[in-house]
């Protein structure tokens, strides 16, 4: 149970970082942390304590098995997260070239 709780704390740290930080890079780090918290939660959803790998063999009774599907899905989610992060860092670099700062309070060309 405490694992889920730690997972929640990680998620809140990420969301806090997105909402409160002014530096673009720190916002990106916040997104990564929140993303990892969700991925961790998904992997935990399929985890069994003292469970074993889900490989079927004739002579073994399969009693306590880890669900492999969330792990496969999390792998996909991590790859997607990588693409989004790369894209975000690229945009942040271009913003730095244009504005000369990472501070979001100084990046304000759009009105409203």
């Amino acid at each position: 149970m405490y694992l889920y709780f730690l997972c929640l704390i990680l998620f809140i740290v990420g969301i806090y970082c997105i909402l409160r930080k002014r530096n673009l890079i720190k916002i990106i780090i916040g997104i990564i942390i929140a993303e990892y918290a969700v991925n961790l939660f998904f992997a935990l959803a399929g985890y069994r304590i003292d469970g074993r790998a889900p490989i079927y063999s004739q002579d073994q009774a399969i009693a306590n098995m880890v669900d492999p599907l969330p792990q496969a899905l999390v792998l996909t989610a991590i790859v997607i997260g990588l693409a989004v992060t790369a894209m975000m860092v690229a945009i942040a670099i271009r913003i730095y070239e244009k504005y000369g700062t990472f501070d979001i309070t100084k990046i304000r060309k759009l009105h409203g």
Partner: peptide, 29 residues
């Protein structure tokens, strides 16, 4: 200038939206 600024805002909001959806899928699963 404007395009990059708008994109960053869009990306942050869009990614948070995707996180909620993924969390929803995880709970549903």
């Amino acid at each position: 200038h404007e395009e990059l600024e708008a994109t960053f805002k869009y990306m942050v909001m869009g990614t948070v939206g995707s996180l909620f959806i993924l969390l929803g899928i995880a709970l549903m699963y």
